[in-house]
């Protein structure tokens, strides 16, 4: 068994919108459009095995409304959050200023968190993390990888270590079942950007 999830899958939402919504329009607007795109993503993931890591690329999407953000981001995360048979991790890239508010709002509303590339090569924890989760995520993000040996140095108190485990449960950090090492999701998809 590998220490990291299988090779990440890159999913270009801009291209999915055009393939899925049988029209020439490429904007991610209206709930049925968002639902169709989410279902297309789910179809791509259906053969991915027990674990998957997907890079959802929004960089080619010009307009993203709240209804679509709810379907393509919030409902996609919710769909897999408690799924044990398929442990799915997501990183959203191309979350630039025009999309950021919509994604932040739908994540907050559903008390979700997600890792997003908000500027080229720069990742943030979006949504509604607890402050201790946000700071724990930041430590992991800065180091990329936290081994068992590093753990007590980087996370000296128990609360922060629990917060790190909660980030794994919330699918915004990956812990290897083999080595027990914690991986920042951004590091696992960086080669695809």
């Amino acid at each position: 068994m590998s220490d990291v999830p299988p090779d990440p899958i890159a999913i270009d939402v801009g291209s999915l919108v055009q393939k899925t919504v049988t029209s020439l329009y490429s904007h991610l607007v209206t709930r049925p459009t968002g639902r169709a795109v989410r279902m297309a993503i789910e179809t791509q993931l259906s053969g991915a095995g027990q674990q998957s890591l997907s890079l959802i690329d929004l960089s080619e999407v010009t307009i993203l409304d709240y209804s679509c953000a709810d379907e393509v981001v919030a409902k996609l995360l919710q769909r897999y959050l408690h799924e044990r048979a398929h442990e799915a991790f997501f990183v959203f890239c191309g979350v630039h200023e025009p999309h950021r508010d919509q994604i932040q709002v739908v994540l907050e509303r559903q008390s979700l968190v997600a890792v997003g590339e908000t500027e080229a090569g720069s990742f943030e924890l979006l949504g509604a993390p607890e402050p201790i989760e946000a700071s724990s995520w930041l430590v992991l993000e800065q180091h990329g990888l936290v081994t068992a040996e590093d753990l007590t140095d980087l996370y000296p108190d128990e609360d922060t270590r629990h917060a790190l485990d909660r980030l794994v449960e919330r699918r915004v950090a990956f812990r290897s079942p083999v080595s027990g090492r914690y991986h920042a999701l951004s590091r696992l998809v960086r080669h695809l950007l």
Partner: peptide, 20 residues
């Protein structure tokens, strides 16, 4: 210049209000 995005989002949401 970026205001066209929130302007479009408003239009999209207000029009969807009719349909939904």
């Amino acid at each position: 210049a970026t205001a066209v995005v929130p302007f479009s989002v408003i239009l999209s949401e207000v029009c969807q209000n009719i349909i939904e």
